Simulated scan of single mutants.
Amino acid sequence: MQKHNISFELSEVESIAALAPDERNLMQKAIAAREGAYAPYSNFHVGAAVLMENGAIVIGSNQENASYPSGLCAERVAIFHAGALYPGETITAIAITASAKAYTVDRPAAPCGNCRQSISEYETKQKAPIRILFMGAVGPVFIAEAMADLLPLAFNSTFLK
């Protein structure tokens, strides 16, 4: 039997203020999007902002539904919206931020498994990585250079040939 060690690196900056101006702007768009979340059941609000290669920014927020799992996460709302608005355009980055009504989210909230798979699909489709920036409501920002860093050994269309 062989054992494999799969590892990855994340960058961390102490706060949104430490980001480069274009990334700070993207995260501020995600924060604004978070305010549009519809989360009456979890009270956990997530905003996402997708940066397209053409400079456009597309936002999304989580949208819950009493009939779980009919809602959608902010990341998928934003990335699917970007794909619909700009088919064939490359997504270069996504910023994600989360807050809660009852407590302060002070650490980065990573995308869930479904969102990781969806972002990975777009990386495969466009043959280019998507930079992922994620944070809580306050505190540090984690930065991954590609979804492959957060979802190693991802299932993709190459398995379906």
Rank of each mutant, 00 (worst) to 15 (best):
Q2F: 14
K3A: 14
H4L: 15
I6D: 11
S7L: 08
F8Q: 09
E9Q: 14
I16V: 15
A18G: 08
L19V: 08
P21Y: 03
E23M: 13
E23T: 10
I31Y: 05
A33D: 03
E35R: 10
Y38Q: 13
S42N: 07
F44K: 08
H45W: 03
G47E: 01
A49E: 02
L51I: 00
A56M: 11
N62H: 02
N65D: 15
L72D: 12
C73K: 04
A74T: 05
E75N: 07
R76I: 14
A78F: 05
A78E: 00
A84W: 05
L85H: 04
Y86V: 03
P87K: 08
I91Y: 00
A93I: 01
I94V: 15
A95D: 06
I96G: 05
S99T: 04
A100F: 06
K101R: 11
K101F: 07
A102E: 15
V105S: 01
D106Y: 10
D106E: 11
P111C: 09
G113S: 13
G113F: 10
R116Y: 01
S120F: 12
E123P: 10
T124Q: 12
K127W: 04
K127S: 15
P129R: 02
I130M: 06
I132G: 02
F134Y: 12
F134K: 01
A137F: 09
V141L: 05
F142A: 09
I143A: 07
I143G: 04
A146C: 11
M147H: 04
A148K: 10
P152E: 06
L153G: 09
A154C: 07
A154L: 02
F155D: 14
F155C: 13
F159L: 15
F159C: 14
L160I: 13
